[in-house]
């Protein structure tokens, strides 16, 4: 539990960080909240020679409205998300989910950017980003670019980030005021990754589902958008048969790993239940 030697860098601007990461190459890792990277370093499963700490960069933090979007700085902590009125009123699913991430100590330090950029299938926020249609702003040696969250995740810990690139902010389009939402997470204890989790954002019209998006956490090597399951509920009043159909459609795309949380069959089974429960709870919240 003792990390190997490394050099520590604390750039003051995004440009400097990008320059450092480009120059140092594969042996450098950006450091945000450190809750994934530092434990891996202590186990010497990660042995970066250089850590580029992003905490010294002003402007990577904060939550602001930008027209029809909400823009969140990548270094905004889970605690800051929880403390934000903008999030609570406009993106309440983020608030609900942040509360299910570990414990207050972790949330004081852990960042939204780190959570979504690391590519860890166990992280909770990426599925939400898919459901909400978020766009990530990346800055790299070749300049900046935007990429949809749905294009970002390629495999466990593999993302669209190019060498030298860092995530600087996340833009989330406004959600209809009357939307319903739910994040259902089954975990063994505080601090655990999800055995299975489902995020739902939907709108209702005349007692029927008008729009719906369903995201899945830790049920595949990347977060998943359960499009067939969402389509199955649109136009329905979420009757028992529909819920069963939607859960089955979601289960069909799950491929979790067997681990101490349970065998594959169990994790898929409860994944379907999380989808069902999230749909019901979201519908009850929609006005």
């Amino acid at each position: 539990m003792i990390p190997g030697p490394f050099s520590y860098h604390r750039p003051a601007s995004v440009a400097d960080a990008v320059k450092l990461l480009s120059k140092l190459g594969d042996e450098a890792r950006p450091l945000a909240g450190g809750h994934s990277l530092v434990p891996m370093m202590k186990l010497r499963l990660a042995t970066p020679e250089h850590l580029v700490d992003l905490h010294g960069i002003a402007g990577l933090k904060g939550i602001r409205r930008d027209g029809n979007k909400i823009v969140i700085g990548a270094m905004t902590t889970q605690h800051e998300l929880l403390a934000s009125d903008v999030i609570k009123t406009s993106l309440p699913i983020l608030h609900e989910t942040a509360l299910l991430i570990a414990d207050p100590q972790v949330r004081y330090r852990g960042t939204l950017g780190g959570n979504v950029a690391n590519g860890d299938p166990g992280n909770d926020m990426p599925a939400l980003m898919l459901v909400l249609g978020a766009v990530y702003r990346l800055e790299g040696p070749g300049g900046g670019r935007d990429i949809a969250a749905s294009e970002f995740y390629q495999g466990a810990y593999f993302t669209a980030l190019e060498p030298g690139e860092i995530l600087t902010s996340i833009s989330i389009p406004a959600v209809a005021a009357a939307h319903g939402y739910a994040y259902e997470k089954l975990k063994r204890k505080v601090g655990d990754y999800a055995t299975a989790a489902a995020a739902v954002v939907l709108t209702m019209a005349g007692g029927k589902v008008a729009t719906c998006a369903i995201g899945l956490t830790n049920l595949h090597e990347t977060p998943l958008l359960a499009t067939d399951a969402a389509n199955a509920v649109i136009g329905t009043s979420l009757d028992a048969a529909t819920l069963k159909k939607a859960a089955a459609a979601a289960v069909a795309i799950m491929s979790p790993a067997a681990d101490a949380r349970g065998p594959v069959e169990y994790r898929k089974h409860v994944g379907g239940i999380m989808v069902t429960r999230a749909l019901q709870r979201a519908a009850a919240r929609a006005s």
């Binding site: 414990d103 204890k189 505080v190 601090g191 681990d259 101490a260």
Partner: peptide, 16 residues
């Protein structure tokens, strides 16, 4: 050993 850390060795917190 597949339960060699507090991630997998169940150590309940006050919440559980």
């Amino acid at each position: 050993v597949v339960t060699g850390s507090f991630m997998d060795f169940f150590m309940p917190t006050a919440v559980e």
